[in-house]
Design a protein around this nucleic acid. Structure first.
Length: 788
DNA sequence: GTTTAGGGTTCG
């Protein structure tokens, strides 16, 4: 450990020098003495540039003054350093210090030196010997450093004593200066404060579940943390903790330093920092990984990011984009023309500016005229906006997509404003080209076919000229598809969109609003999407075919001959035989109510020995039909692979696993009610049947340009506004569903021409012994009114 | 000398 920084606190070194070395004063230095276990201490009064000797060895010279010997005529001595020690010390002394210079001289202790006659003593008037130090000679240099110096030097690969300790956010105490890690829950990108510095406000959380809002100032934009999104992980060194309004608050202290990491689990761990070198050890990688995993399940990072194609009117969103043009507008606003390769589906405003005020490549501005968004930035954002370089990549936070009033002369359009102030992190951040999202955006921008957008314009002009109705119709149809979503949310309207990639990179369970296109779905044969679901055991099964039912009916042919068996208090039975050769017997039991037979539409029948056809015929005339068979103990339900009840067009089934059928006599309790409703749920309950529900089960593959995501639709009737229970027996409903799916996912259409869907989805975990998977399910979403 | 801001959307 040849060069070590000693941390100074209130002018005293926090760690003392090793006890085996003793101090030696300047006037006691004698040639030929062994100084292996001695040290000389002084302040640096002069240092020379680092040079190389003829053999390539680094060489560095400083002059130390012995303060304890100030009365002496000769009070300073040359120190010659060789090798890595020379390099390290010169780094500490000569590196650029990014904050205000201090007037505290550097204080060095040089141990294990060699005392050699100085060839220059006659010229420089210093001690007639000099000190020689190098790693090879077993020397050590201790540098007394206050916190600012340590901040500047921590990034050198030399050790600072003591090692950094990190305080968790629930352990912070008023008046301390600490090091900490945290996950960004909220941030304001650096902005120009009303004072002399840039300001950035950052709220951190950590697994202790405490929260800390930090107010960071710096005159140097680069020394503020480079946070790009909520969920980023930061390491702060030397942040001062104060109490403010009853809460702990972090504030920059002298020597504040930070590292920022992408918070995505699995993303490469590359610190973002203004320092060229920094301390970073294996243990810290572990901490960052742990924080990422914790954040993934404890922090909602579904921010308001959006592409221009996904812009919601009336909402605020964050846009990652490239600057194409900029212009001054007036004293309080400034125009940024940006693009992200997608087209806003709504008409957007164009801010008029003097041509000579517009900066940017003219050709490119013209080429991209249909793809650029005009963003007007106000007040405090102007200064930063003016300084932006054309072509740079930006993230603009909390842009307001404002719907202009319809009576505007340009018609209804969307305006993009970056209002004054910094509420909700409103501001502009410049992303470096090395940022992975910038790389992705760049690739996408290069792939955009500009000719396509010219075509769109041709179509618009055709429409305006009214030369072709069919083109106009097509266009309006296309517009319908491209503008309004074909599905809408029934709840969660205030939620903002999350892109699919973000969802795929997050842990479950969470809920999201998405805006995406339906690339494909399964099953393509829609009737295969209808299943039976047991809400008790959560099993799904296929709907039995009519053939299964028919087979069961044949097995329940009437065998009893004694008609008196059937005449019980709560129903009347009749039996007749068919006229054909088989002379098949059919028995119908009419359930009585109040001693009287009801109107057929209110009547429940139990039928023995009927065929499928007869069953359906009876269902048309009577309220309910229950297929039964007789046993020695009386009437019983058929096997549960048959429906236990027919009502309207619907066959109701029971779950074989969860049902414990009771004797038919249990129905008498319902019949005794004043006005039996004969609801399937009530009938099922008294008969000990766990009712299976009809449900649409489909897999939707969504795309939004950030990655495909498969989500399950599990819907009784809300999504299609078609009851799953009725679709199998209704040609009309089947056609309706087919048309709906053709609107959501028109066959043979290019991806760009597919309509947008807006959905609410939930992620959830499915774990078993061998694997763990995250699934997604569509909720609280319905097909738009004009699509149905 | 040590402020500035101290999170919680909008004038345009």
């Amino acid at each position: 450990m040849p060069v070590l920084l000693l941390k100074m606190v209130n002018g005293v070194a926090e760690t003392s020098l090793p006890s085996h070395i003793q101090k030696e004063n300047l006037n006691n230095l004698r040639e030929g003495v062994d100084y292996t276990n001695k040290y000389f201490q002084g302040i640096v009064t002069l240092s020379y540039p680092l040079t190389k000797l003829a053999d390539g060895t680094d060489f560095f010279k400083v002059v130390l003054q012995d303060l304890s010997n100030s009365c002496s005529r000769i009070n300073s001595i040359n120190v010659l350093m060789y090798g890595k020690m020379a390099e390290d010390c010169s780094k500490v002394l000569h590196r650029e210090v990014t904050f205000k210079p201090e007037h505290i001289p550097d204080n060095f202790a040089v141990a294990g030196f060699k005392l050699v006659k100085s060839p220059t003593a006659a010229e420089d008037g210093r001690h007639d010997c000099h000190l020689e130090v190098s790693e090879d000679a077993g020397s050590a240099v201790y540098i007394y450093a206050n916190s600012k110096r340590i901040a500047a030097s921590e990034t050198l690969s030399m050790s600072v004593a003591p090692k950094y300790a990190y305080t968790s956010l629930n352990q912070l105490k008023d008046g301390t200066i600490v090091n900490l890690y945290g996950v960004v829950k909220f941030f304001k990108p650096p902005y120009v404060s009303k004072g002399t510095d840039y300001c950035s406000v950052v709220t951190l959380v950590d697994p202790s579940n405490a929260k800390l809002t930090c107010t960071l100032f710096s005159g140097n934009l680069d020394s503020l943390p480079k946070i790009y999104k909520v969920g980023d992980v930061v390491r702060f060194h030397r942040i001062k903790i104060r109490e403010y309004n009853g809460q702990m608050q972090g504030i920059t202290s002298g020597g504040f330093a930070s590292l920022t990491f992408d918070g995505t689990v699995e993303a490469p761990i590359v610190p973002r920092t203004s320092s060229k070198v920094y301390t970073f050890v294996e243990e810290e990688i572990k901490t960052i990984k742990e924080l990422r995993v914790w954040a993934a399940s404890n922090l909602s990072i579904s921010g308001p990011a959006a592409k221009l194609s996904g812009v919601q009117p009336m909402l605020f969103f964050d846009l990652t984009c490239q600057l194409v043009g900029k212009a001054k507008v007036d004293g309080s606003s400034f125009l940024l023309k940006v693009w992200d390769g997608t087209k806003c589906p709504f008409p957007t405003w164009k801010v008029s500016v003097e041509k000579r005020d517009l900066e940017g490549e003219k050709d490119l501005l013209h080429q991209l005229r249909n793809l650029t968004a005009d963003i007007l930035v106000y007040d405090n954002h102007m200064q930063l906006a003016k300084s932006l370089k054309i072509g740079s990549f930006l993230r603009i936070y909390s842009i307001h997509a404002k719907q202009a009033s319809a009576d505007n002369e340009d018609g209804s359009h969307i305006e993009f404003h970056l209002h004054g102030g910094t509420c909700y992190g409103r501001g502009i951040g410049v992303l470096p080209e090395s940022n992975p999202e910038v790389k992705e955006l760049k690739e996408f921008l290069e792939s955009v076919d500009l000719a396509d957008n010219q075509d769109m314009e041709c179509m618009s002009s055709l429409k305006l000229e009214g030369t072709s109705n069919s083109v106009a119709d097509l266009e309006s149809h296309l517009q319908r598809c491209q503008q309004l979503p074909v599905t809408v949310l029934t709840d969660h309207q205030d939620l903002k969109n999350t892109d699919l990639k973000t969802i795929l990179n997050s842990t479950a369970p969470q809920q999201y609003r998405i805006r995406a296109k339906l690339r494909t779905y399964q099953p393509q044969k829609l009737y295969q999407s209808v299943k039976l679901h047991c809400s008790k055991c959560n099993s799904l099964q296929e709907v039995p075919t009519e053939d299964d039912f028919d087979f069961n009916l044949q097995g329940s042919a009437v065998t009893a001959k004694k008609t008196e068996l059937y005449n019980v208090s709560w129903y009347d039975s009749i039996m007749w035989a068919t006229q054909d050769q088989k002379q098949r017997r059919i028995v119908i039991h009419f359930v009585r109510h109040d001693e009287l037979l009801q109107h057929p539409k209110d009547t429940l029948l139990m039928v023995e020995g009927g065929t499928l056809k007869e069953m359906w015929k009876l269902t048309k005339r009577f309220k309910c039909v229950i297929p039964v068979r007789s046993t020695e103990d009386g009437l019983q339900l058929l096997d549960l692979s048959s429906p236990f009840l027919l009502q309207g067009n619907v066959k109701y089934y029971g779950c074989k696993q969860c049902s414990t059928p009771k004797p038919i006599n249990s129905l008498s309790s319902l019949a005794a009610e004043q006005q039996p409703s004969w609801e399937p749920t009530e009938i099922a309950e008294v008969l000990g049947i766990e009712l299976l529900q009809y449900v649409f089960v489909m897999k939707f593959t969504f795309v939004d340009g950030t990655g495909p995501l498969n989500a399950y639709l599990f819907d009784y009737e809300k999504f299609f506004q078609i009851p799953a229970s009725e679709i199998l027996t209704s040609n009309y409903l089947q056609q309706k569903m087919e048309m709906t799916m053709n609107t959501l996912c028109p066959p043979g259409r290019k991806l760009g021409d597919l309509p947008w869907l807006e959905c609410f989805i939930k992620s959830y975990n499915i774990k078993d012994e061998t694997k763990h998977q995250v699934y997604y399910q569509i909720f609280d979403t319905t097909v738009a009114e004009d699509v149905v």
